[in-house]
Design a protein around this nucleic acid. Structure first.
Lengths: 184, 184
DNA sequence: TCAATATGACTGATCAGTCGGTCAATTAAT
DNA sequence: ATTAATTGACCGACTGATCAGTCATATTGA
């Protein structure tokens, strides 16, 4: 059987265009053109535009799970914290467009329905990993500490991605580490 | 001159529909119908759909500035903090749909261009108010403290609005106050 | 009568999704 | 080994629906 050369190209092109111009502003024709294939082929692999979106999210979620696994390599608290923060801020810097796209999905009612399943799963998993980290560090209330930690991280991501100019990302990174390295 | 009964109804209907179904999924026909008015009248008051969106954002920004002013009533730090947090969490509870809508605008490239001006202004203002609060409280680095404080708040808002189920909003509220009432 | 408010049928563009089909490569039958 | 049958990757013109925006016209109040 001939290899499915097109399918992957379509996924890549769609992700790139969705992230750049938004879901609603990207037509299936553009995606096909971007992938160097016909529209028909696109519909041969994906039932609908929404199905294509879901496929993208599931693919990206898998990649992020892999990154999250790196964190859970058992070691002492301070190292885990450092690894986690380094990974998080690195990802933040390298994936601004994709992260914006993902956030846009969560706040558009029609798209939220499609993607909330996989995204929820990913978020809960990340949170529970963080709880474990703080529990091993001997936090008095690891659950709450994890919630606040993740809130602050995601808040930083939000500010960095949205309205604030010249966001001091590196400064926030070092500050966070200093703040959390010795648990109160 | 007859009063512009229609204009306000159009703004209200548009805000409500945008927040409920998203900008792209809301047609000008729906808005007109929702306002009990013809489509032609809508275009009599607003040049385009984008202009209507901008008008909504500017209107809403004014309302939020008023809320922000309440915070800056001069008093002791602990009272200011309490008032600010109470206002913030109250707003969070009462305006979930609108906040989601506003966030969706910031992350859709085509819409971001339209709304980022007013929203940026509002965000910077809120941040600088917070800096003042922490400076008066004698924080060693009020600028950074304010940044982290706002990050955590907006991160909580993000988590509450997006993927997490059964978010413990009230618990976070009291925790934050306890944490910040005596500055480290 | 002048000007503002208001109408809704209409237009042109765009877009998601369809469908009849081509062709190269594999498989099976002779 | 040659050919016939079958598969599925791939194409792009087309359709039906939707939608932003227009305009000729009507209504109403000052």
């Amino acid at each position: 059987m001939r290899p499915q050369l097109g399918k992957d190209k379509i996924l890549q092109a769609a992700l790139s265009l969705f992230a750049q111009n938004g879901y609603h502003k990207t037509s299936m024709n553009e995606i096909a053109k971007g992938a160097g294939v016909s529209k028909g082929l696109t519909y041969n692999y994906f039932e609908s535009k929404q199905a294509l979106l879901l496929a993208i999210i599931e693919q990206a979620s898998k990649k992020m799970f892999d990154v999250a696994e790196k964190m859970s390599t058992p070691s002492d608290y301070k190292s885990m914290l450092k690894i986690f923060l380094d990974q998080y801020f690195l990802f933040l810097k390298n994936n601004k467009k994709y992260l914006s796209f993902q956030l846009s999905l969560l706040f558009q009612p029609d798209l939220k329905k499609i993607v909330e399943g996989p995204l929820q799963q990913r978020a809960e998993r990340l949170l529970s990993n963080t709880v474990i980290m703080f529990r091993e560090a001997g936090a008095s209330n690891p659950d709450l500490t994890a919630r606040r930690f993740m809130s602050e991280l995601d808040g930083i991501a939000l500010h960095n991605l949205s309205v604030f100019k010249d966001y001091p990302l590196d400064e926030m990174h070092t500050q966070l580490f200093d703040n959390y390295k010795d648990l109160k």
